[in-house]
Write a protein that binds this DNA or RNA. Sequence first.
DNA 1: ATGAAAGCGCTAACAT
DNA 2: ATGTTAGCGCTTTCAT
Lengths: 326, 326
Amino acid sequence: MTTIRDVAKAAGVSVATVSRVINNKGYVHEDTRKVVNNAIHSLNYKPNEVARSLFKRKSKLIGLILPDIANPFFPALARGIEDFFYQEGYHIIIGNSDDKEEKKNDYFETFLQNNVVGLILSTNEIDLKRVQKAKIPIVLLDRINEDFPAVFADQIQGGRLQAEKILERGCKEVTIIKGPETIKPVQERFQAAFEILQQENITVNMIDSKLSFQDGEQTAIELFKRFPHSDSVLACNDAVAIAVLNEALRQGRRVPEDIQIIGFDNISISGIVYPGLSTIHQPAYEMGMKAAEMLIGQINQEPITHLHYKFPVEFIERDSTRKDDD
Amino acid sequence: MTTIRDVAKAAGVSVATVSRVINNKGYVHEDTRKVVNNAIHSLNYKPNEVARSLFKRKSKLIGLILPDIANPFFPALARGIEDFFYQEGYHIIIGNSDDKEEKKNDYFETFLQNNVVGLILSTNEIDLKRVQKAKIPIVLLDRINEDFPAVFADQIQGGRLQAEKILERGCKEVTIIKGPETIKPVQERFQAAFEILQQENITVNMIDSKLSFQDGEQTAIELFKRFPHSDSVLACNDAVAIAVLNEALRQGRRVPEDIQIIGFDNISISGIVYPGLSTIHQPAYEMGMKAAEMLIGQINQEPITHLHYKFPVEFIERDSTRKDDD
DNA sequence: ATGAAAGCGCTAACAT
DNA sequence: ATGTTAGCGCTTTCAT
């Protein structure tokens, strides 16, 4: 390994001078700068981030905790975050929490031990007192908390859109799939949709589900058993919606003629399944980018202008609802 | 921040003694161990990984470079890797290469600067001389190279299975979708399938595609335009296969009656789409786990028993092929 | 404009 | 069984 010492020796200067040129800080004569740079190149020297990190107590590492990277909504978030930080010379340490308290705290601690300079959390509320004590920049992503910077999509609006659009398309008996109680945004979208539906003179069924494809499969089977006359379903996310789509078709129900379905998320697969899934678009990649941008702002001590950044959502109509209805 | 000094002071011992107890190394009296542990707990002391890493020139960090976490095959790999390393107290730094030389090298360098102790690469061959020079443990995942440890699924077998199964199901004109030339496993599966098909007295069409859902959409449209009489397709991966499924249905072709489709990967969505996609199962999660296990072996200097670990693949028959044919 | 030296938090000789 | 100390590679006062 070549160190700053080697470079100093090769260039015939002190380590301090080398440090000055690699950090572009303090006075250094043009001529010596050239000599040093030559040495750096010919030795192919790269400063050791760990030593830097130790001294400055700040690394170029960002901690990212999310529930499960295998859940199709999160890769897009992660990609947005990563793309932004790559530009800025930061790197991501990633942890899957499975929404388990223990894993979250574990990651939180070890991330701190690694001098990460910032944290993005897409997982349920961590013990936030700890975060405050650690005084580390943080942004919540796809999660909301009054006291912390957060980036999220407009769940209320999303839930409302689900309800309004399905109403407009003439449903008489809608089944709403309620996601896990513990996941706030999922609850919010449910609440919003539910409230609107209740005010109407239609039948509203309710069924619980978790969020994965596999869970969706179970839910779908149960759904059609319990509510065989349901003419529409509002799903807690696209994964579950697609499972319902599948099960409906499998049972010989026509989509959207017999049953209409609206999902939530607009994951990349939703435009590719048959029939295309109508859904609420959350701009996941952009949300990831924005969260990264807000975090960098904090890291660079820029003043916080918006504590919360709310993305609008959008109804994407494909083929699982009746476009030309009336 | 509480350091080893603080603990030493609180416990009335030297830093060396504290170091001995936290590392469980060297002699330390039972009584003093207790005193020290008490101090550690009451101060809530956590050793700084960065300082450790600097001294030992080894961190608890693993570098993971993959093409694109948003591509649905990779999250499962990543999850397997992460789960394994979490158990072992290691953490993952992740980089998306987009199969770009520059990004790969960038990540490689910065990972080294961060003292990662090992590397898992799911991306196209990096400048492997560099790896050798860096003398860092490495495992290739879903990629193959004679000289480096690698974990992969049996592409030849997979390609053959695609071909054999489609043949058994009575196809007369099969279109085979060839993935990017640059991605070796994708080429291998293509080659294997193609060779078998060629020996038969049937028509074999060929079309190129990239691997994402979006690319698959284009491919699907072009496919049916160029080969309207194709009665079966062998796709380079499931994402593309699902896009073809969709387009076929959209055009009013019946699956599997008019057209049969076999994918490759068995991503989680493949069992949920309608009709269920018949495909070749690659055990992505297990492959990730295995790669992590092999890497740990190297890190711990255990002797290498197998340089390469090849997972068998399996034909999963769902509804996009004719089960009860003949 | 440059260099010497201290020190970030830790581990591992070496000494006792 | 415990303590002292050098040093991992770097940055940053403080001299000069």
